[in-house]
Structure formats: C-alpha cells, structure tokens
Design a protein around this nucleic acid. Sequence first.
DNA 1: CTGAAAGCGCTTACAG
DNA 2: CTGAAAGCGCTTACAG
Lengths: 334, 334
Amino acid sequence: MGITIKDIANEANVSTATVSNVINNTGRVSSDTAQKIKSIIKKHDYSPNVSARNLKNKNSNLIGLVVPYLQKGELEDNPFFWELFNGVENGAKDKNLDVILTGMDSEQGFEVFNKQYLDGLIVIGLNQKNGLYEQLKNLNVPIVLMDSFIEDEDVYQLNNEDEKGGYIATRYLTNLGHKNIAIVTGPLDQNGVDKKRLYGYKKALKESNIDFNKEYVYEIGVSLAEGYKASQKLFAKMNEITAVFILSDIGAMGLIKGCNELGIKIPDDLSVVGYDDLYYSDYLIPSLTTVNQNIYLKGKTAVHMLFDQINNKSSNKKVTLPVELKIRNSTRNI
Amino acid sequence: MGITIKDIANEANVSTATVSNVINNTGRVSSDTAQKIKSIIKKHDYSPNVSARNLKNKNSNLIGLVVPYLQKGELEDNPFFWELFNGVENGAKDKNLDVILTGMDSEQGFEVFNKQYLDGLIVIGLNQKNGLYEQLKNLNVPIVLMDSFIEDEDVYQLNNEDEKGGYIATRYLTNLGHKNIAIVTGPLDQNGVDKKRLYGYKKALKESNIDFNKEYVYEIGVSLAEGYKASQKLFAKMNEITAVFILSDIGAMGLIKGCNELGIKIPDDLSVVGYDDLYYSDYLIPSLTTVNQNIYLKGKTAVHMLFDQINNKSSNKKVTLPVELKIRNSTRNI
DNA sequence: CTGAAAGCGCTTACAG
DNA sequence: CTGAAAGCGCTTACAG
C-alpha cells in the first residue's frame, strides 16, 4: 500500500519505465541513474506490486503442491508430506517461487481446478483410473506428477525405484532366512507405487524359490491406524509368518505398536521392514529397517522439473530417484 | 490464459461491467441476463484472472504462515507444524484464502519481508528479544502471533494455557508421588512458551512443598535429537530422578528412545510426560502421557483471527486456547 | 540512455 | 437494470 513505481520515478525525476528497467536489471539504464534510483528504492523500502507485475507478465510465481486428502479438508497425517513439502519449499526458494499447498479429493476432484493462476502443479499419487488426470491436463498448466504411473510420454513424471525398493527389502528378508513374509499395502487396484513395490516383492520371492502366497498380502492400507490394525490380522497367522514388509514407516509405527500390545516381539517373533525412512524411523523402538527414499530431495527435484517446464528449458521428462535399504534393528536372522 | 471477461461479455452481448457484476454477485443484474452469462462462463470454464482482480482490489487472498527455520532453508522436523499447517489450511479454506508457508530465520530475519503482497501473516514463536517483531510491525500488514509473548495491546495473539499445561503435568506427577522431577526445555532466556510451562512446573512443585531444584532443569532443547541427548544427561541422575517432563512430544520420542538404549525402563524406572499430544503420541511405546493442545484447532483459530483483522471485524485480540492432560502409559505411581 | 504510451484483465463509481 | 470509462501498478515495444 502506498508507494508505487510512480512515486519512485517522481522522486528520481525519471520515468516509470526507467525505474522498471532498474528493478528488472535490463541493463538499459546508465549506472548513475541506476544508483540514484536504487538508493531511493531502498530509502522507501519499496517493492513492486506483485499483482500488477503478474498481470503484465502473465505469471504468478506461485506453484501448487497437490496432496491427497484423507478426509474432506484433512491432510493425511504423515510426516512424509511435511518432509516433502520441506524439499519443495527449498527447491522453490532457489527459483523464486512460492508454494501453495492444496488438497486433492478423489471424489470432488481438485480444489486446484479453481486456481488456474498457478504457474504449475506438483501432483502426488495420481493414477489413471478416476479421470482426474484428464481434467488436470485440460487445465493446460505445467505439471509434474510424483509417485504416479500415467502412461503419457509428454507428462513430466518423478518416481522412485519402487519396484527395486520392494525387491531389496524382500530380498534382504529372504537372505535372512525368512520364507513366510507378509506384505501390508494400500489399494492395489490402481497402478500406484504399492503395486510396483509388490512386483519387487514377488520378484525377490521368486529368486529365492519361495512361492507367492496370496494370503500374505494384506491390502489394508499403510496409515498409522491401518498399520495398527494390520498387526491384529498378522496375529492370526503368527504360527506361519516370521516377517512383514509394510509400505510406509508411519504404518510400521502403528504395526509395531499393535504387535507390542499383542505380545509379538520385534524382531524376535517378527521382523519388520518399512518404507520411506522418515527422519524419526531411527528413533522407533526397535529402530526400523526400511527402504530409504530421499523425500526432501524428491520434493526439491520436482520443483526443478516444474521450473524447467514452465520456462521451456529442455529437461528429462521422466526422472527416477534411487532407493536404498537402511538396515536397523527391526529385522533379524532366522 | 486466453479467455477473459471481455470474451464473455462479447458472447453475451453485454458489457464487462455486467459480467463482473454477475461474477461478484452484486445483485445488480437481472436474473435473465445473469443466467445467460453464467451459462457462458460455465461453457468456457472461465475463471477471472486473479492478478487483475487483486490489482484492482488491493489484496491477494494469500496469507503467510511463518515458521522457524532450524537451519537455513530447513523447516523443523516436527509433525507439530504439519498438524498446525493442516489446521491453517482448513481455516483458510473457509475464508477463501490460500496459504504460503515461509521460514523464519532469527539471524537473517524473514524471507517474508520480501512478500509484502501477503494479506496477512501468522507468525509462530516470536519473542521480544531480537527486534524481529519491530520489523514485522513496520511491514504494516495484519499479523497474528502464535505462541509468542509480546507485550503489545494492539497485536493479535493466540496462545495456549502454557502455564496451566506445565502445572497440570507436574501436578499429575506429584500426585503420583514423584518428588524429583526433571524438566527438559528449550531456551529459557526468552519469554516463550517454555518459560511459561516452567512457571507452571514450579507452581505445582510448590503446592506439594517440593523444593525447586535448579539442577533438574535441563535446558537442552526439545527436538527429536535433543530429547535423545537429554536421556543421557538424565542417566547420570537416575539415582534421584523418578520422572521427567519434556516440553514436546517429539522430544519425548527421542528421550524414550535414549532411555530404551540405556536400559531405563519407562514408566518403571522413569515416568515421562510430553507436551503437544501429536496424532501419533498414542502410538509410542509406551503410549505417551502428555499435555494436549489442539494444534489443528489452533491453526484454524489463527486464520479466523487474521481474517477478522484483515476485514476490520471486531474480534478478541487475545485468545487463549485450553490445554488438557492426556493420561496414558508412560507414567506410573510411585 | 530515456520517456510517452499502450495494455495486461479486472472492478467500481457514475450516468442513464 | 446496463454500459462507458477510468484506474489499479506494473512492463515493454517503440521512438528519439
């Protein structure tokens, strides 16, 4: 409020064009004039009106991070998103962008559909099924999909080596001598990360000549509460199962808690492997063996991809980030 | 890009003013005309250019949530902020605002100083000392301070009953028979929440005729890693101390982990009380007795206060939210 | 190197 | 009930 480019121009006895040129470092202004203008700008703590600038430049320097809603208006309780957001924030800072976070609702669609002024979107966990992708595409705004598996050559996609993640975790367990390994996943009807990880799981079993047992697949979700629930299901099979691979650390936390209440000792009675490697996974009791995906880096990378797209820089449209097994104390030799 | 209010006006054979009046529901348009215009808008999926609107209206519908940086560019690893942000998001949605998250750096000041286009700010944990508050005030933008203790009648402030929180937690421990109760806090040199909670702690001790022992105050911080470190300090005094009150749940998580490694059994050897009541505190092992502050509600309330301020609605400038003790299994009778 | 002027896409008195 | 016109605060060809 208050001071505008006009005021600065008046005080400096120049035109607004010249002031604008100084602000934008176009190099069209003599250094004397530029100096004078800069000092006046500083003196008044002037900064350009962003709306006016955006209107003219047809951009907003605002990007959206679209995360799934658990319930209407409630973001999922998973530190994963905070770490991701943190990475996105940091990447955005590099590029002078601001980040808006917005929820996604698989029924209502995206609030984001009313936010066409965003310069770009980073969308998590979008799958072909529900047609949301088509709607998104119609928005005609640069998009980076994360943890999504959309078959479209043109769209920018950032993933981790999810199949490998499933593989190395399971392989580690088979190497420890486990044969009856349960897996706890989210919905498998869509082509998401969990499905990929399940492939990896199957592949590792096969390599060890262990028959895939459908009954060991617990498709009950990987939230905190769902992990907890999973422990009760596992309890019924504790005469067979010696290890479980659950596809999120937050789920593993719930699972371990449930096991604790049921008297299932970890790793003595049951080895547990998680997925994500949250910043606190090392602090669980026992510390959690898990598949590390660098979430912070992931967020940052997504922004860089989006930025390149917005600015028509050529860059790789498909990026896959590595995963790595972190061996801790929730697993044991058998 | 592309379609503007002018296009809509042309197609409807009306002026842009009329279209604008329809969009903004001013009620100045006949319902016939309005209907026609609305259908054209819908047909083209038109939505007004936000920059143009903001320029005219002199607002942005964007607010900033300013959280402390742990390190340059790195938000603190505490689910607290995610829960808070979640509440803020939800409150913002009610008011048609978007939220930008930005870090605060006690040395560099705020990035936010370059973001004068924001309609308002919610700032966490600001204290008188470093002069940041004065700079913020000069921004001349509506502000709500959260968990801050600034002596200024005019500023909107949202707090919890921190002294009470410290009191009820400690009181609970003394009622269980504990006399030598350690407290783990963040920096006490500023007038922050930890100081208030410490007052409550002292008050409860006094009521039980327990002398305050300065050596039981561990001012080492309440992050995950700091809580872990605290366990080692406590270890040296395990012949005296029977309970510890640590001023965050994430810190408690670290502390419990450390105790576990040191062979300190909780609650058998040591009762632990946390603070915050994170969504997963019930899932720690043992489940954590803690002081609940409704973080989600807190975020939501902050937005409402900010909104009222932005719109010059009269509302209470000082709001204090209640706290409540959640008794779980990390504490025991002695 | 500098300035006059048009224009970005809206909203809002004002006139009719 | 509707429209012509000004103006929000910038940027950018264009002319000089």
